[in-house]
């Protein structure tokens, strides 16, 4: 049986300790710069904080995975190399990498440290995954959220590395690592700067009638009615008017979160080695609740008991959840 490792998010040292205490097998985190895909204001770790985090995690038999999962712009690779050097010096257990150049640097410089291929690399075929394994020694691939469980099972049989899948959290299904929608409006890149809808460009406006508009770089993304559940201010989750429709509609995706709690047994059976919880930008409260819930569920399944699955819908975007492509190729 697959171990079903729980890979949990941490945006701050306090969140990391919360995740470890709640039963994380590993915690992923990043530095306070563009080397990771959650380069949000006030979030992430200084080198000193990461040193303390690694010590704490290791003392509780948890691992620390350092996200270096953005793409260096031309001529700026030194920031990513320096981050890898610091992570190696501080004893992280693995690097989560998307860019081949970063992977190549780590593979050559720190051959004893594991490389996990980030979802940002969007490697979804056995051929692509094998390429990363053969050339950079990748030990684990985080699969894009566009594959069904039978497809995952099939891929597992054809690759020489572990599989990690997302099981909870933000559900963004643009070709991961390729989305330039934020770049289009703000000039900042999700993939190179690590910022999807940078907070400095986001504005929420409450109107006198109780409705609320969200805007990115001055462009309206959505307007929520009184009491209507809201979502993140991202272009892909925006609601738009078009000439051929009378009402505003979600052109790309709806505000909804992934929740695969009820599919855990099938994922384990399909050979998924590790389960990832999204949400480094979320609070300790979220980390505590979600990690505890999935720790209990995975432990139940591994012990042959029916999984006790906590209701987490209150923590989901738009207070809606989906099994997405894992359950069916058409999930709208």
């Amino acid at each position: 049986m697959s171990p079903g490792e729980l890979i949990c998010p941490a945006g701050t040292p306090a969140a990391l300790r919360t995740a470890v205490d709640a039963g994380a097998d590993a915690v992923y985190c990043g530095f306070q710069n563009a080397t990771n895909a959650r380069n949000f204001p006030g979030l992430n770790f200084t080198p000193d904080e990461l040193a303390g985090a690694v010590a704490h995690a290791h003392s509780k038999a948890s691992k620390v995975l350092l996200a270096l999962n953005t793409y260096p712009p031309a001529g700026k690779v030194d920031l990513w190399r320096a981050a890898a050097d610091t992570g190696a010096r501080l004893g992280v257990d693995a690097f989560i990498v998307a860019d081949m150049g970063v992977a190549d640097y780590i593979a050559r410089t720190y051959p004893d440290i594991r490389i996990h291929l980030s979802v940002q690399a969007a490697a979804s075929s056995p051929e692509a995954i094998r390429y990363y394994c053969e050339n950079f020694g990748v030990k684990r691939v985080v699969l894009p959220r566009i594959l069904t469980i039978p497809e995952i099972r099939s891929i597992r049989k054809e690759i020489p590395c572990e599989i990690e899948t997302f099981i909870f959290g933000n559900h963004g299904l643009m070709v991961e690592g390729r989305c330039s929608l934020t770049n289009y409006l703000t000039g900042q890149s999700t993939n190179m700067d690590g910022v999807c809808s940078p907070a400095s460009d986001v504005e929420f406006v409450r109107h006198d009638d109780g409705t609320m508009s969200s805007r990115l770089a001055g462009f309206a993304i959505d307007c929520f009615g009184c009491g209507e559940k809201a979502g993140y201010p991202t272009i892909c989750k925006g609601r738009y008017t078009v000439p051929h429709r009378s009402d505003a509609y979600y052109a790309f995706e709806e505000p909804v979160s992934l929740n695969l709690a009820r599919l855990l047994p099938e994922l384990i059976d399909a050979g998924v080695h590790a389960f990832k919880i999204e949400g480094r930008q979320r609070s300790k409260s979220y980390v505590r609740s979600v990690v505890s819930a999935f720790r209990a569920a995975v432990d139940d399944i591994r012990a042959g008991r029916p999984a006790n699955i906590t209701d987490l819908v209150a923590l989901t975007e738009g207070q809606k959840q989906t099994q997405g492509a894992f359950a069916t190729k058409k999930w709208r």
Partner: peptide
């Protein structure tokens, strides 16, 4: 940190501007 800010925002219990 007894409640999650994003969740409170999603539920419209919390407003920011």
């Amino acid at each position: 940190s007894q409640r999650d800010g994003d969740a409170a925002f999603f539920s419209r219990d919390l407003e920011v501007s």
